[in-house]
Write a protein that binds this DNA or RNA. Structure first.
Lengths: 214, 214
DNA sequence: TGTACATCAGTGAACGCGCGTTCACTGATGTAC
DNA sequence: TGTACATCAGTGAACGCGCGTTCACTGATGTAC
């Protein structure tokens, strides 16, 4: 973008600072606790001043969600260069986990309990699809495994999602399992449901994903 | 409980009505949206009146969480009578899903993004343990399978959780996977992440659980 | 380089709202004799 | 059965708080000649 006058650069910085503080608000008070007034106060500004940067609270939340989706997709896409599909999928799983642990609020903002009354932007499905494409490619290149879940695979044969990406039902089935298993461990871990159980969630995560890659 | 004077019965009814309305508030505005004033208004009462029944907002939330945990545990324990371990675990999985779909707010209240600033009551771990006991028993009775995830199983050997229930590491590993896989599908389904994908989450759920029971 | 003007960041007051919680109180419901 | 008293449900006013958002404004920053 060539619109880089001092003023627009300044605006970008402020917008970034606002988002940064919004994330700490989520950490402290949950997604519903995002408040323009609160952010302004921490920046040494008054509330209305923020309306120069975001026209309303929902616009800020939308941008936070889209940013998070994009960052996660980028982390996954960074694994695309790995030639071996098994290694690629394994490192994609690790990339997702690393990102989720590094940015728990962001992860839960996307995949956690939906923000009440807030409708997620439509653009997110395109990003989801981009992530899915990496998984589908990977599983398509993995040698096929013994048939399981025939019910589900039959079902998926008649439902063409995944856009123009004509994935085999078996690959789609595994990609979906990849997603749900990763999320299962991650969301329980982030919500603190494993604390006090004295085992390492990383190993559980790896085991659950590896079972899909054998 | 023999304390069933007309007055205590009346109190119990009001408390139940309060909880009922709190659940609809969660549905409408999320767990953070629970508000004593709002509930009172819907009951045709004034806000302070509710303080006869709950000493503060957190006490209400705590009771909602404990109720939900207990109900879920009950649903799982109802499967204990099934003799065949495979069938028992299968129906436990279905019981969990049925309950989660029937009471999405309750499920997300327990397993969703934690309520900000709110500290969950300690009694929940005992209930979690009761659910885990059913799973551990079931997997202990299933004939052992080909060794997988040896890293994780080694790890679990040295970490004795699950209380006095001396479960084998292999059973513990499968019980944990049962839990995370169930939650993975359920929470994504409840959060609406499968809408527009045109497949039946029930089949994905069944397939992911069945893979553990073969 | 200097002046005139337009743009824009941020302020402060205001609006209406809902929240949790306390307090002193009225009036109904139960209890004891 | 009737009266005297204690208990308790619910009210209304009040406190202090924070929220999103609007509006008219000041003062600084950039732009054009």
């Amino acid at each position: 973008v060539s619109t880089s006058t001092p003023r627009t650069r300044y605006r970008e910085n402020i917008r970034a600072e606002i988002k940064e503080l919004a994330l700490t608000q989520i950490t402290e008070s949950g997604a519903a606790g995002i408040s323009l007034n609160g952010i302004a106060k921490r920046m040494g500004m008054t509330g209305p001043g923020l309306y120069r940067y975001y026209s309303c609270r929902d616009e800020l939340i939308t941008e936070l969600i889209l940013d998070a989706y994009r960052e996660l997709a980028e982390a996954v896409r960074a694994c695309e260069t790995i030639a071996d599909p098994r290694q690629r999928l394994r490192s994609a799983a690790l990339a997702i986990r690393d990102w989720a642990l590094a940015h728990p609020q962001r992860y839960l903002l996307i995949f956690g309990t939906p923000v009440p009354g807030y409708r997620a932007p439509a653009d997110t499905t395109a990003i989801t699809r981009a992530i899915m494409a990496v998984l589908l490619d990977g599983f398509a290149q993995l040698h096929p495994v013994d048939p399981d879940a025939t019910d589900l695979i039959d079902h998926l044969t008649h439902h063409h999602w995944a856009g123009d990406h004509a994935a085999s039902p078996a690959a789609l089935r595994r990609a979906l399992a990849f997603w749900t298993r990763a999320h299962g461990v991650l969301s329980l871990e982030l919500a603190g449901h494993f604390t006090g159980m004295g085992f390492d969630p990383a190993l559980l995560y790896a085991a659950d994903i590896d079972a899909l890659l054998r």
